[in-house]
Nucleic acid binder design. Structure first.
Lengths: 333, 333
DNA sequence: TTGTAAGCGTTATCAA
DNA sequence: TTGATAACGCTTACAA
């Protein structure tokens, strides 16, 4: 392993000078700087990260903490973080964990390694805990959750406006009676989207009856169960909005199994726009969740947060979902 | 931050002794050991990883290098590695990259951090390069690729037997004329599976004509394209085996778009058993690729490789794909 | 069985 | 503008 000392010896300067050249800190003569840089490039020297971290310097490590990586949604997020981090010469540490203890473990783990940049996706931790975390982790960015006290370090989706957009789309296609199948996890996303939907329909003088609103697990099975409940309770609707694509596809398949044609008899909309939305039959019209963009943005924000310590970020970081029209919604107007 | 020195002071021993207790190395009096351990537990001391790495010790870092994380397949792999690593108290570093340069960068990156355990998924790198890598990276385990020189450090799937199993399944369902749509990436997986399929049918006296074998991108579009070609060329078949689930679903959807019923008129089989196999319509019968198990296995193998240096692994690590029957294959016998 | 001291590669402080 | 020197927290000869 080639060290800073060896570079110093070759360049006939002290290790300190080499360090200064590497970090662009302190005064170094122009000629001297070029000399040293040339040698560094020639021999392909790379500073030892562990020594750096030990000496109390930046580690250029980006940590990502999410529930798990196997779902396409988190997969996109991880890829986004990884891509953005790598392009900024950061390395990526990952840690998947959901419940309270593992989240703290995960984050401690990262910090132990000297990782100060962390992208956190977590819906379970109480706000208070996240605030504490944020306080002693300047590079922490929270994704997909808005906490007003640290608004400038949250990257989130405008769920209520997304709900509105979806509702408006269905309304414009002539749908006056719609059903909503939502996540039962009691998270704000579900609440906000429903709010957006209800609010839009209310503005058109239409109230969505409670019979037409079901909650279930945000999974394929949840979609199936909700549809059964909806049909059993003889709820009337020409279109259905699901909390995510998995539920939507479960719902679509179950409807079709019952002999109800999609979209001819019932239109279905999803949310997220993950891979299954384009492989389902019919292909699912859905709200595109720009999670990849958001992941990249969050990563850059985190780096900024730890770099320009003088330049406080006073901006909020809200993204919008966009409509992706495929084949699961029929125009009945 | 609490250090080894402080523990030593509290326990009234030297830092060396504490170090010995932590690492279970060297001789330490039983009483003394318990004493020190108790204090460690009480104050929740965790050794500084960077200092450890710098002092030339294990880092307990597991690196994973795959093409990308957004596909459900690699997502499963990453999750598997992460789960296994975390349960062995390893941290996980990820690096996605595919082309030659980025793979080397990724691996160098990991090594710079002191990460000696690496799970590599790569089909592009020439064998020779991988051998070089393996030589100077004792903890490298190659997944989904078999290189005979380092057989004991490869965890791979028996593709030809998987092909055979799929073929046998179709044969037993009465299918005598089958089509195969394969990956055009020129990788051994594709070749081996086709071999397994052909070989089985040959053993029944049936030759699969070249008209019935198409190659395309291993994607949804690839599946669509292949089916079009197959139909255009008036190939005759009652069942179709695809290289992966994406191709299979693309094929299924395109067949149905053409008015050909699945599975009534044409049966379709996939490969991998990723999420879309259970959301497609009809649900896809497929070969389950035990990538999660393989990922966990590879991770443990890597740890073993760097731990018990005296105990060489002389075993090979081949996994089998298993049949998952859903609704896309009809019994026509 | 335990402790002392040197060293891992880097950065920071202070002096030149 | 440069260079010694001391830290950072840990492991590991070597000594006791």
């Amino acid at each position: 392993m080639i060290t800073i000392k060896e570079i110093a010896k070759i360049a006939n300067v002290s290790p300190t000078t080499v360090s200064r050249v590497i970090n662009g800190k302190g005064k170094v003569g122009n000629k001297c700087r070029k000399q040293v840089q040339k040698i560094i490039d020639e021999v392909g020297y790379r500073p030892n990260i562990n020594a750096r971290a030990l000496a109390g310097q930046k580690t250029e490590l980006m940590g990502i903490v999410t529930p798990n990586f196997s779902s396409p949604f988190y997969g996109s997020l991880s890829t986004a973080v990884s891509d953005a981090a790598l392009s900024e010469k950061y390395r990526v540490l990952m840690s998947n964990s959901n419940d309270k203890n593992t989240v703290f473990n995960a984050i401690d783990s990262l910090k132990e390694l000297g990782c100060e940049n962390i992208i956190l996706h977590n819906k379970m931790l109480p706000q208070k805990e996240i605030l504490t975390l944020a306080e002693n982790t300047p590079g922490l960015v929270v994704i997909n959750r808005h906490i007003s006290e640290i608004s400038s370090r949250c990257v989130w989706l405008d769920n209520s406006s997304a709900g509105r957009t979806a509702a408006e789309f269905l309304y414009n296609k002539g749908h006056r009676k719609i059903a909503v199948i939502n996540s039962d996890r009691g998270i704000s996303d579900a609440f906000d989207r429903l709010f957006g939907i209800k609010h839009f329909y209310a503005s058109k003088g239409i109230e969505i009856s409670n019979d037409c609103i079901k909650e279930a697990m945000p999974s394929l099975q949840g979609g199936i169960d909700s549809v059964r409940e909806l049909i059993d309770s003889k709820a009337e609707f020409t279109a259905l909005i699901a909390y995510n694509d998995m539920m939507a596809v479960g719902a679509m398949n179950e409807l079709q199994n019952m002999g109800i044609k999609v979209p001819e008899e019932v239109s279905v909309m999803g949310f997220d726009d993950v891979i299954i939305a384009s492989t389902s039959r019919p292909a699912l019209s859905t709200m595109h969740y720009p999670i990849y963009d958001m992941g990249q943005y969050a990563t850059k924000l985190s780096i900024q947060l730890t770099h320009d310590d003088n330049k406080p970020v006073n901006q909020s970081h809200q993204f919008m979902a966009t409509l992706v029209e495929r084949d699961s919604v029929k125009d009945i107007s």
